[in-house]
Design a protein around this nucleic acid. Structure first.
Lengths: 342, 342
DNA sequence: GCAGATTACGAAACGGTTTTCGGAAAACCT
DNA sequence: AGGTTTTCCGAAAACCGTTTCGTAATCTGC
C-alpha cells in the first residue's frame, strides 16, 4: 500500500533535527545556514542529524519572512506542440540551478483560460510569470498593473514596454539563404507554409534580403505559401519543377515541407544535393535525421530562448527589470541535403 | 517597464476587500466562501469589492489550516521526448478542473537528480508526487517511507505495492494483429525496434498471440528487431520482401519504422494497402497523417493515462490509496494504410 | 419586553523557519 | 582569584493571510 495520509511518516522539520542533534532550533538553523555563531563540532552534529533524517527545509516557511515564494508561474499555450517544449526545458533548466520552482499551467490558446490561470498563480504568490506562446506572432499584453514581473517567450507581447524573448526569423531566413549562396546555388526557390504566420513572412523576408545582397532573387520572384505539411512540400516542389527545370536549391519554411520536397525530388530522379540542395527550418530531429539524405536545417535555439527568458524574469524579480523584445539567433545545422555545387 | 518589485501595485488581501466593503475580515471571508451567517446585502457588497480589487485569495495561507498545500509535484524524465508530454497533459487536465497546481521538474533520466527534485518538492510540502518515466520499462521505487503518496506513470515501479499506471503493450500488439486478420491478411510480418525495450517485446508477444488465435504465425516465424528509425524500417522491409515476396501485411513497432516501410514498398512498386497493409504504433500525428497513404496506427491513449494517474493520486491524497499496476488500453486509429484485402 | 434567530466582529490558530537578543560558559589577562 | 572578552547557545518574537471560534450586537416575532 502506498504511504497513506494517516500512517505515513511525518515530514521532518528543523525541530526534529535539533532534537536529534541535542541543540535548540535556533542553533540548528544557524548551523545549517552557515552562520558563524556555532562551534564546528556542533555544526557537524547538526549536519549529520539532518542527513540522517533526510531533512529538507520547508521552503514556504522560509520564504514567509522574505515575502517571496520562490516559485514562478509558467503558462504555456501549446503543451502538445513542438515549440513550447524546448522553451519550457530551457526555462526549467535555468531554474534547476537555483532554488526556484516552476508551477506549470496549460492555457491551450484560450485567453480566458489564461486569465484564470494567471489569477490562480497570483493566488499562490508566484514571484514572476512566464508566458509561452504557441506561435511567434505578437499577442495581447496581460497589462502593466500586475503585482509581479512578466516575461513573454516565443510569442512577444504587443506592448513594447513588456519584456519579450523571441526568435529572430528574419535573421534565420537570411542564414538559410546565405548558406545556399555559399554553396554556389543561384536558382533558389522558397516554399513555405501558412501565410498568416508572421514567422513564415519573416523568414521569406530574410531570405529575400540575403539573395538580393548576392545579386539574386527568389526563383519565380516570390515564395510559395501553403501549409506546414509534407503534402504541400511535395506538390509545391512539383510546381517549381514544372516551371523551373533548372532549380538548384529549395529553401523550405519547415522540416515537414522539406521532407515533402525531398520525396518529390527523389521520385523525379533528381539528386540531392547534387542537382538540388534542400534546406529545412526548425531542426525537428526526428524528421531531419531520418530523411534521405539527412536534412540540413535551421535550429531556432529554443532552449536558449527559454533560458534567456528565465534569466530576464529572475533579473526582474531581483529588482532589475528590462523592457522590450530580445531576439535569439538561430543556427544552421548542416546535414546531407546541402553541399557546394559540383 | 515591467511592473517592478518596488513600484508594483501591492497584492490585494482579504483585509483590503474587507476595508473597501466596510466589514470585518471575518465577515468578508464568510461572504466569499458562501457561509450562511452573512446578510445578502452585505455579501453583495463584499463581492463587488472583491471584483473591484481583483482579489484572489492567498492559497498558501488558506491551506495553512488544512495542512495541505494544494500542489502536487510532477517529476518527468523525458521532457523533450514524445511520450511524457501527453501524459503530462492528461495530468494537467485533471488538475485544472479542481484547484490543484502542478510543480514541474525534469530529472532527465538521472536517479540522483530525481532524488534531489523529490526532496525539493517535499520541501514545498506537495500533497503528492507523480513520477513520469521516459520509457515503459519498470524502474526502481522511491521507497515506501515517503510522507506523501506517489503514483508512477508510463514507467511502473518495480515495487508492486506502489501505485503505477502504464500502457498495455501486449494488448496493443494484439489489437494491431487482430486488425490485420480482420482485413483478411494472412502473411503478416512484424518489424519493430530496440529489443531492450520491454514495450517492443510486449507488442510482439501480443501480436503473436493474436495471430496464433487465428491459426497464423508471424511471417518468417519471428519479429525483426532493430532500431526506432525510418532507416531500419526501410532496410527491414527490403529484407522481408527479399525473403517473402508474397507478404500482405507489415506490423511496425513504431510510426517511424512504418514510414520507412511505406517508402520501401512504394519504391518497389507495391500498392499500400492493395498489396500490403501497413500498421504503425504510437499514432504520432505528424508522421501518420503526412504519410502516403496516411498511416493506420495504434494510439496509446497517453492523455488518458495521465488523467488516470492524476485521479489515483488525488484519491490517495484524499485518504483512499490504491496499490498495484493499472493498464490503460490502446486504440486503433484507422487511416489509409490498412484496408480489407480485395 | 423578552426569547430566539440572525448577523457581524475581535482574536486566536495554523505552519516552520529566521532572527534578535540576552545570558551562560569558557578562555584569557593581570 | 577576579575581571573582561570571546564564544556559543536558547527562548521567544516575527513573518504571512486566511479560517474559525466564541461572543456581542442587532433584529424579529410574539
Amino acid at each position: 500500500m502506498q504511504a497513506g495520509s494517516s500512517s505515513s511518516p511525518k515530514v521532518t522539520t528543523l525541530a526534529d533535527v535539533a532534537r536529534l542533534a541535542g541543540v535548540s532550533i535556533a542553533t540548528a538553523s544557524k548551523a545549517l545556514n552557515g552562520r558563524s555563531q556555532v562551534r564546528e563540532e556542533t555544526r557537524q552534529r547538526v549536519f549529520s542529524a539532518a542527513d540522517q533524517l533526510q531533512f529538507s527545509p520547508n521552503v514556504l516557511a522560509r520564504h514567509l519572512l522574505s515575502g517571496r515564494s520562490g516559485t514562478i508561474g509558467l503558462v504555456t499555450h501549446d503543451l502538445e506542440g513542438r515549440f513550447s517544449i524546448p522553451t519550457l526545458m530551457g526555462a526549467e533548466d535555468a531554474m534547476g540551478t537555483g532554488r526556484m520552482s516552476v508551477l506549470l499551467c496549460d492555457a491551450r490558446g484560450d485567453a480566458l483560460r489564461e486569465r484564470h490561470h494567471v489569477q490562480a498563480l497570483l493566488g499562490r504568490r508566484v514571484d514572476g510569470l512566464m508566458i509561452v506562446g504557441a506561435r511567434p506572432d505578437p499577442r495581447s499584453s496581460l497589462g502593466r498593473d500586475l503585482p509581479v514581473p512578466v516575461v513573454y517567450a516565443y510569442a512577444p507581447s504587443e506592448d513594447p514596454e513588456d519584456a519579450s524573448v523571441v526568435t529572430d526569423n528574419v535573421a534565420a531566413g537570411r542564414i538559410g539563404a546565405e548558406h545556399m549562396v555559399a554553396c554556389g546555388r543561384e536558382r533558389i526557390a522558397v516554399i513555405t507554409g501558412d501565410p498568416t504566420y508572421g514567422a513564415a513572412q519573416d523568414r521569406v523576408t530574410g531570405a529575400q534580403a540575403a539573395l538580393r545582397d548576392a545579386g539574386l532573387d527568389i526563383l519565380g520572384g516570390s515564395a510559395l505559401f501553403g501549409a506546414w505539411s509534407e503534402e504541400w512540400g511535395r506538390s509545391a516542389t512539383a510546381m517549381v519543377l514544372g516551371q523551373h527545370r533548372d532549380v538548384d536549391a529549395i529553401i523550405c519554411g519547415s522540416d515537414q515541407i522539406a521532407r515533402g520536397a525531398l520525396d518529390t525530388l527523389r521520385e523525379r530522379g533528381l539528386d540531392v544535393p547534387g542537382d538540388v540542395a534542400v534546406l529545412g527550418h526548425d531542426n525537428w530531429e526526428v524528421l531531419a535525421t531520418n530523411a534521405r539524405p539527412t536534412l540540413t536545417s535551421i535550429d531556432m535555439n529554443l532552449e536558449t530562448l527559454g533560458r534567456r527568458a528565465a534569466r530576464r524574469l529572475f533579473d526582474a524579480i531581483e529588482g532589475h527589470p528590462t523592457a522590450g523584445v530580445e531576439a535569439v539567433q538561430s543556427r544552421l545545422v548542416p546535414r546531407g541535403s546541402t553541399a557546394p555545387k559540383a
